[in-house]
Design a protein around this nucleic acid. Structure first.
Lengths: 169, 169
DNA sequence: ACTTTCTTTCATTATATTTTGAAAATTCAG
DNA sequence: CTGAATTTTCAAAATATAATGAAAGAAAGT
């Protein structure tokens, strides 16, 4: 396989994975394109290389900036905006995990918490206990997931792998 | 809040979370309904309580069985099938994580691996090296994720939490 | 202030996913 | 084997999500 071909396949594959991660196909493809590009890239180049519309390119570039996965780069003497991706995969992963936690774990914990406020003296004890215990277990698990991602988000790569080793031993 | 109301909200909330986890709304709602039900439930009851069609109920019950989150229960003397959910939240989480790994991590690792087979002597060394290094980093991270979920899947709850504490210390 | 260049917005269109429901298949009893 | 009960399938309809592109908005030079 040739390098350029491999890069193209990487872009396609990253797009497909993205959709399994709550990231839409185009957003993930733009991200991949920037990951494999040495030089910063303009909106027009994104449109051309991926065959998407200006609106689509713009919206997803903006979303990638919100996720802190890419940043604007200005070239002196030019008005057009260019974009480049964070290349450190550890940082990339951490940032994706952080965004996913926002969407997946945080709202769940909040809802579970509010549901535990049951004030119903007439209910049968067993049914009540069982339900509350389930909510507690869910919260306990979510809490553990939170702690792990916190550790991940706050630590640097080397540190995390050491911790992982410790855990595995 | 009354218990029944809380259960209903739990079902709705679980449905919403599900969609952030690659589980469709109805599948997650059926799962939640079974989680909060003491007695096994039939397809007809699912249809009635959630207001969904027979086809939908059937397909998602089947999917939940595939995920090993619910199981068929036969009542003696009856032909109709009933279903009940695994109630241990630890097991539930482990099974969901296992399925998600199948969809999210495994295919990625396979693709990344195949892309590393670049055979192109004419390419500039730097560009080539940079791309291969990125693929390696992705694979390294995916490998760590794999190891963690393996540990999770194979361990029991108490064990995992002890390991977690060790890691956090 | 005018013009050009580039960016952003958003109503419309297109695509992808989920749901429906009736028909087909299966299962079991007599 | 026949018929009733139940489950499964799947083409068509409904819904949800993403993409388009033209128009509006901003920014910068003249």
């Amino acid at each position: 396989m040739k390098l350029e071909q491999a890069k193209q396949e990487f872009i396609d594959a990253w797009g497909t994975f993205g959709s399994h991660w709550g990231i839409n196909r185009t957003m993930a493809q733009i991200h991949a394109l920037l990951l494999v590009s040495d030089e910063p890239i303009s909106t027009d180049e994104v449109m051309e290389k991926l065959g998407v519309s200006r609106g689509n390119a713009n919206m997803n570039l903006r979303a990638l900036i919100d996720w802190n996965l890419i940043e604007r780069k200005l070239k002196k003497g030019e008005r057009m905006e260019y974009f480049s991706a964070e290349k450190d995969i550890w940082k990339v992963a951490v940032r994706i995990i952080r965004e996913r936690r926002k969407k997946e774990i945080d709202p769940m914990r909040q809802t579970i918490k509010s549901l535990m406020d049951i004030d119903d003296k007439n209910e049968k004890k067993d049914e009540y206990k069982q339900f509350i215990n389930m909510l507690k277990d869910i919260d306990e698990f979510a809490n553990a997931a939170d702690k792990i991602t916190d550790k991940l988000v706050l630590s640097d790569k080397g540190w995390f792998f050491i911790s992982l080793m410790k855990m595995m031993s």
